[in-house]
Design a binder for these strands. Sequence first.
DNA 1: CAATCTGTTTTTTTT
DNA 2: AAACAGATTG
Length: 835
Amino acid sequence: MDRTEAVELLETEFPRLGLTHYRNLYDPTQIIADMLAAISRAKDEVVDEARYAELAEAMLGSAATPEEREAAERAAEVARVYAAYEGLKRQAHCVDFGDLVSMPVRLMERDSEIRAHLQAQYDHVLVDEYQDVNRSSVRLITALRSDGRNLWAVGDAKQSIYRFRGASSFNMTRFGTSDFSGGARGRLKRNYRSVDEVVQAFSAFAIRMKAGDQDSGLESERGKSGSSPELRTVDQSPQQTVAIADAIEEMRRAGHAYRDQAVLCTGNEKLSDLGQDLERLGVPVLFLGSLFERPEIKELLSLLTILTDRRAMGMVRAACMSEFAMPISDVDAIFSHLRASDSTPGAWLGELGAITGLSEAGSAALGAMAAAMRGFDQSASPWTVLATLLLDRTRIAARIGGSSDIAERTRGLAIWQFMNFLRVQPGGQGLPIVRLLNRVRRLVRLGDDRDLRQLPAAAQGLDAVRLMTIHGAKGLEFPVVHVPGLNGDTIPRTPQAPPCPPPDGMVEGAEGRALDVFRAGHAEEQECLFYVALSRARDRLFLYAPTQKSNGHNRPLSSFLDRVGSGLLRTKVSPTRNLPPAPEASDVPLVIEGALRFTGAQIALYERCPRRFFYTHVLQVGGRRTATAFMQMHEAVRTVFQAVIADASIIGGEGDLEGQIINAFAAHGLADHGYVTEYKGFATSMIRYFLAAREGHTPETPTALSTAFGAEEIIVRPDEVLVRSDGSRTLRRVQTGHFRTSEMDDVGVAAFLLAAQRAFPGASVELVHLSDQTVRPLDLTTKKLQNRQEKLALFLERIRGGNFPADPSARTCPGCPAFFVCGPTPAGTLKKSFG
DNA sequence: CAATCTGTTTTTTTT
DNA sequence: AAACAGATTG
């Protein structure tokens, strides 16, 4: 089971584990992933759920301060999740990555017969990269070769970059003493890989590294080459990409083919951007980037959604494909038709005559679409649908196969990779397409699509530049290495404490305060990362850094650069070429008849991502994301309190409240849910709080309030208007979830305040959060309120101008309804009115 | 002039 | 989240 499957496994169970510190959240995906990381760390140390609970218990016993107490309670909650997770995993007959080592360790330590059998099976054990072993690995090796005879290990503490998964210099130190006592140690002094200039650079840096021996300088076997490592600085980061492209071509002229060059980054995200940019600059690149964000893959995913999405949102993207091209006005007509109808997803493709107002091109494209989808319905298998479409019913595969263009071939490889991914989906219940789409969202959200970004083995022979993370490059070497992004905020990066820190005593060899140990370890690891990057280069080494942020502010260089000695050549370069702009079309030709009328909440969505606003409120498709049961519960709560606002008399006695909740649950499809009892508990306490918070006030029927911005209008509807005995009014916005500090900063809240002040000067304005059981006053400084007001006017102006740029983020995009379709829009002008 | 507030930018790694 | 620059306040 990978991490994504593990999160899925825990998700339904999570809300009823009774956690308080890691309490029930609207979307617990992130915190579950954090806890699974903590559990995975525990397995690195061969600490099972029972032992974890003991350690947490011990922490609680010795806690002196409130902070220590809280840390102990948090650890205890992780222990509870750990136990639940192990149970679920066993029921599902699955193992996770941590189990792959910790289970054999436990088995061998427990069962002498198996241990003897395996010991007899292997005469010699060789361990490479010993700095990357964790306690679990050491115990596995110990079980195989307890006396250490015929065991050979090689490692370099300066390359220890897997600390976050439990690798520690602690293990290097213990070799030959506490572990495998009597083992002999030797030192390797000669470097066979790099020219002298490169060896000098990373050896100079190594002198002041905290990891490894101080006198570990290396001699270069290959001698001097006459070329020094170079640092090339540029003004801003787009120029950095051009500088890299220029250097790659420069090296190619000097006899180093594309395939002999590698670009190394700290993270995958930057690698994806860089890969796309280099490709646009004409440099062939061996990297797909984020597979599910590639245009050709999004098109295929959009086609699949047409079979399962009642509103057929995928049409907005499919209509951009040459096979199914139609104007955006036709897509709008289809959406209007589907909003009014209520048929099975995909069924409308068989009744095209019912759609009115289509252009000739639109009718033809829809005919082609219907023919391509013939015989498939919502229960179809994704692989079968796409294989049929690509190979039999369209010319897509043929076109790609017939091209020799490297970008086109990369598209073909991406599709090949994607089709292989489709074939190995885990089993489960529900419609295969829906399951697939949910899994893709989850994979991207957790960053688990990483392994799909690397081109498959079949492509390794291509003459293209290698793009890798520094972690991915460990153990490899390249004639030419380019390392961009050497800034103070990138390497060394300031550490963020783990959300679920390990309990005291779990990590062997960690002395002192947990946070200090963590910080020291992190600093050490950052140095190692830099050392690994530099030492990948055989002949030439290029480092790059922008010195400005995009707003012209200063961006400092990495402090590590001053430690590589005087051999580093520093040059400021100003590339003459410009980075071609990304093909992302953000503006939509839009004609709006009449005034704009949007609610504050709708405009707040424009602020979060204008593109999402476009799909949701202009094209009016998508709406909210697929709801989990927990979200449905929140919806049910909203239904109940709104019913109370409309008519408070519906809740007279104690039984009425329960009756209302039961009805609302049934209406939201929760009646038969496995955890309906727990959910009812949450719902009841939320509604009780709601009722308590309005006690002593006289409710008034809330009406819509509006604020004018020129001809345009923003509408706000308070959830409650309450009148106190002295006649003063309170306007409230009621939310079922938790309060976030960022909530005070968005324009939705400002619109609410503005409208309220206009309609009822002097009234107090409050935000109610039922999950927190809080009522807080909504106060904004005049300065802030004025800024928000200006923003609102600006947003309205941009909406009218059809300006809808996407604001992509790996964290929020996978949860967006438009995730699969987001990108280019079909040709033509869109006419709309919002009266 | 210093302290505080506000807004912007950039941003993890894996079997 | 955190670092930074610029604006505002005391």
